[in-house]
């Protein structure tokens, strides 16, 4: 920044997208730039399970803390849920390093747009930008470095929380109610299918999501459960009309401990009622 005159490209009006600007000016800084041949899937750790669900007036996203590499646990305390801006958050599954870079680019993208334009993107607009970033990673995905996000946000105009799922080609699918991504999401979604109700309040929904993550960890070796000895608990991010905040560890710890206490009585977790 201390070189001489600012390059002409910086002074040229045009895009409000940081990713587009980066692609034009410094493509070497893009996540997954310079792909090399071969399958790279085993080179980097993988992040696993993310779940999200809406409740009246907001949306919650939660993720476990484990990253694996082959049969080994690579990270026990990884962060896979990130605030993207005040009213949205993104959880990531897949190739961990690349995913974190992608999130950093996405966060910069949203902030950059806001500063240049003086206004925020719509929730749909944000989801669409994330599509473009995921699609930009397609070459890496073909080589085994897949990144699949789960995007949640609060739509201030409609007053509701929204969830968007993605595929590795950047395909974007709005989800209703709840969604999951990552290796353990199969089991987590099974749990959510039985436990989720659209009218749950915030605290109950947090408990439901932690239950779902517990079920994922129960059956998927790549998903980490609550780690009482190390005091590592799922990351839970809540977004409402008042903005977003990540729940403090102590709060999630209390929920997780309650879940574990319940499982000591009934290892398979709460029973869904058999009614029509």
């Amino acid at each position: 920044m201390s070189e001489s005159r600012i390059p002409a490209a910086y002074m040229t009006p045009g895009t409000s997208s940081f990713a587009d600007f980066l692609t034009a000016q410094s493509p070497e800084l893009l996540p997954g730039h310079n792909p090399v041949p071969g399958n790279l899937g085993d080179l980097a750790p993988h992040g696993t399970t993310i779940v999200a669900a809406t409740f009246p007036g907001g949306v919650i996203i939660a993720g476990d803390r484990r990253a694996t590499q082959g049969n080994l646990i690579a990270e026990r305390d990884m962060r896979k849920v990130f605030p993207a801006d005040e009213y949205s958050a993104v959880g990531i599954a897949g190739s961990a390093g690349l995913a974190v870079e992608l999130v950093k680019l996405f966060q910069t993208e949203l902030e950059h747009y806001e500063k240049i334009e003086g206004t925020t993107l719509s929730i749909e607009g944000k989801a669409s930008r994330l599509s473009a970033l995921v699609r930009g990673n397609l070459a890496m995905a073909m080589q085994g470095l897949v990144v699949v996000p789960l995007f949640v946000g609060f739509d201030p105009d409609a007053g509701v929380g929204k969830i968007y799922g993605y595929d590795p080609t950047g395909g974007r699918y709005e989800q209703t109610g709840y969604a999951g991504v990552g290796s353990g999401s199969l089991f987590a979604k099974g749990a959510l299918k039985k436990l989720y109700r659209a009218d749950l309040d915030e605290d109950t929904l947090v408990a439901v999501l932690v239950q779902a993550l517990y079920d994922a960890a129960d059956d998927d070796s790549a998903t980490g459960g609550p780690d009482l000895s190390r005091k590592l608990f799922p990351l839970v991010h809540v977004i409402t009309a008042d903005g977003g905040h990540t729940l403090p560890d102590a709060e999630v710890a209390a929920v997780a401990e309650a879940v574990i206490a319940g499982r000591l009585q009934r290892p398979d977790g709460p029973i869904a009622e058999l009614e029509a």
Partner: peptide, 13 residues
């Protein structure tokens, strides 16, 4: 705009 781009570019890199 140039300033925002310079700053975001540096912060990102």
């Amino acid at each position: 705009i140039a300033g925002v781009r310079l700053a975001d570019m540096r912060g990102y890199a």
